[in-house]
Design a protein around this nucleic acid. Structure first.
Length: 623
DNA sequence: CTTAGGG
DNA sequence: CCCTAAG
């Protein structure tokens, strides 16, 4: 391990003349210099050869390296792709050259070096050092070592570790200045507020220290940047993982203004502009500067381990996914949530899925990070569109019963208006196609309308039906045979999808029931499509499924009522029991025999002789 | 598409 | 009646 070629490790460290990177007014751009870290931690200017090597490597990584110093572009492109470059290319077998992402370094230097709270103001770092000194080096070191821990935990880990660690001690004079940790407890309210601002990118006027601390802590904990830097929060202290007690815990600051950072990352085109570049760097690091994909993975794991309370990662259910997506979908238009999603995305997402194109696409979110179980599970983004038939178009409902419908329409309408008058059309669509969040309110309404409708009108019919079972002639509605022919416009409605959709809950007339029973007796239960075709040819609105369902109900009813058939007869008028006893009896008989030998019946039914005697009896008795 | 079963 | 899963 120590024998290794670690001494050849090279790094490109950004050297900023000004720490004010955050304050965009930096006059001097960041300059990067390729250096080699000696085994003992000394920095040695890179040789021309090394530079070449690096360039090649960069080339390999699809990043245009240009001149060594101009690594910004490299960074840029990498960033946009959500992958940082440390990894393979720089882990050349011998003499690994590690390329330190300038952004990372820069950011951290800004963030951590200064006193946290005063960052904004005091941005002007006195520690303007040239080359490898103070601010930058500190951070870079830190970062380096931290990264080393994680990324190279394999065999290489130790190798890398040695140099970097030593390096930090040697050329980081300012390190001692670090307080070692951020102790939120010791900060004043104002400082906390500053920290809050720095952490969340917005001001807060909250004076409550506890609240502020909690918020900040949470913010830090949830920050991918944070996790990637291998720092953890322990008892309100920000400390480096694994060094909670020992070594120099580092003061960490999670940068600023995520939004800006994100925006910049999207506008990755402004490579030419230096100022932008600088800002970009700062911001970017702010939003997140995690290193490589695999690193963040490891970090995640580590965090779990650290937290102990790690909940098990649960795979979200389909339903869950759908609903979540749906919410995001609808809320995406809202600026705030929009920003939020975007904010999170570039952060972890881009790193987790380097392949995803995060550039300035209209909708870069294909997956989202979800804090499900606090684990940051990847949840695919799906559009929640009804997979099956769309719910009945409410315009169809309008056709149903003019009088009632007016009211219904108004109701529905009002809901729409309430939710937002702007996109009426769109909302209509939503209602039909998807159950969007706002739609939840609409759905019930419609249901109510429907119910109202048939309860007001049809219910009575059914009852009457019941009464007149035999002489249904006087009531047109009773005889569905011709009734529906005349009513078909009301009954079935065309759906956008193409099929004819029948109105909800068409009450079964006894006539239909009889036909059903007969059909079952003739063709056997289960052959619903047959029965439908033959016995219900005149009832287009009854589907085979309906028949089946109805049969099921009949069965249930028959078994319940048979024991007390007499009582049932009396209770015929009890609204809920429209089925005449005789029919139920027959149902039961059929069920009985079919339940017993349905298979036989189905085969022998056609010939009519193979069925059992009891079957024959039953049938003859009632038919 | 049809059937079967759960909701 | 609606929705889905199976065949």
């Amino acid at each position: 391990m120590e024998a290794n070629e670690a001494d050849i490790e090279g790094s490109v460290f950004p050297v900023t003349n000004t720490l004010g990177a955050l304050e965009k007014e930096i006059a001097d751009p960041i300059v990067y210099q390729l250096v080699r870290v000696d085994g003992d931690g000394r920095l040695v200017p890179a040789t021309q050869d090394e530079i070449m090597v690096v360039e090649d490597l960069l080339e390999d990584d699809k990043c245009e390296p240009k001149l060594v110093p101009d690594t910004r572009q490299t960074t840029e492109s990498c960033k946009t792709e959500g992958c940082l470059m440390e990894r393979n290319p720089f882990q050349a077998p011998e003499g690994k050259l590690e390329y330190e992402n300038p952004k990372v370094v820069a950011e951290k230097s800004n963030a951590s070096v200064d006193k946290v709270p005063d960052l904004e103001k005091m941005g002007a770092p006195e520690k303007v050092t040239v080359h490898g000194s103070a601010p930058c080096s500190e951070l870079s070191n830190i970062d380096l070592s931290g990264r080393t821990e994680i990324s190279f935990n394999s065999e290489d880990a130790l190798n890398e570790d040695t140099p970097s660690t030593s390096a930090s001690s040697s050329w980081k004079p300012d390190f001692s200045k670090l307080e070692g940790k951020i102790c939120l407890d010791n900060l004043t309210v104002k400082e906390l507020q500053e920290t809050f601002k720095a952490t969340f990118g917005r001001e807060t006027s909250v004076k409550d220290k506890q609240w502020l601390k909690r918020r900040i802590t949470m913010g830090l904990t949830n920050s991918c940047d944070f996790s990637c830097t291998t720092f953890i929060i322990r008892d309100n202290l920000v400390v480096r993982k694994g060094e909670e007690q020992i070594s120099h815990p580092v003061k960490v600051r999670i940068s600023a203004d995520p939004e800006v950072g994100v925006a910049n990352s999207d506008s990755g085109g402004s490579l030419g502009d230096r100022d932008n570049r600088v800002n970009d760097d700062a911001n970017f690091s702010g939003t997140d500067v995690p290193s490589s994909a695999f690193e963040s993975c490891n970090v995640t794991k580590d965090l779990y381990a650290e937290q102990g309370t790690a909940k098990r990662v649960r795979k979200p259910t389909k339903r869950y996914i759908e609903e979540l997506s749906e919410i995001e979908e609808t809320s995406e238009k809202l600026p705030s949530s929009y920003k939020v999603s975007r904010y999170r995305f570039p952060c972890t997402e881009s790193l987790m899925r380097p392949t995803t194109n995060v550039r300035s696409n209209a909708r870069p979110l294909f997956t989202r990070q979800d804090s499900l179980g606090g684990s940051g599970v990847q949840i695919p983004f799906v559009s929640r569109i009804r997979r099956s038939r769309p719910r009945e178009n409410f315009t169809s409902l309008l056709k149903l019963q003019p009088s009632d419908m007016d009211m219904a329409t108004r109701q529905v309408r009002s809901v729409f208006d309430a939710s937002g008058p702007q996109e009426d059309d769109k909302r209509n669509n939503d209602l039909i196609k998807t159950s969007s969040t706002p739609g939840w309110t609409k759905q019930p309404l419609i249901a109510a309308c429907e119910k109202d409708e048939h309860y007001s009108g049809m219910r009575i019919v059914e009852l009457e039906n019941d009464m007149n079972e035999d002489n249904s002639d006087d009531n047109v509605e009773l005889n569905d045979g011709f009734e529906d022919n005349s009513d078909d416009n009301v009954i079935s409605v065309p759906t956008p999808k193409g099929g004819m959709r029948r109105k909800h809950h068409r009450p079964w007339t006894i006539d239909e029931v009889v036909k059903l029973v007969e059909g079952v007796a003739r063709y056997g239960a289960g052959r619903w499509s047959e029965i439908k075709r033959l016995a219900f040819a005149s009832c287009p609105y009854r589907t085979s499924v309906d028949l089946k369902d109805k049969w099921r109900n009949l069965l249930k009813a028959s078994f319940v009522q048979l024991p007390a058939e007499k009582g049932m007869l009396n209770s015929r008028k009890q609204a809920s029991v429209p089925i005449p006893a005789p029919i139920l009896s027959r149902v039961r008989e059929l069920a009985d025999m079919q339940g017993q030998f349905q298979p036989i019946l189905s085969t022998g039914k056609s010939s009519g002789h193979s069925s059992g005697r009891s079957v024959h009896e039953a049938r003859s008795g009632y038919l």
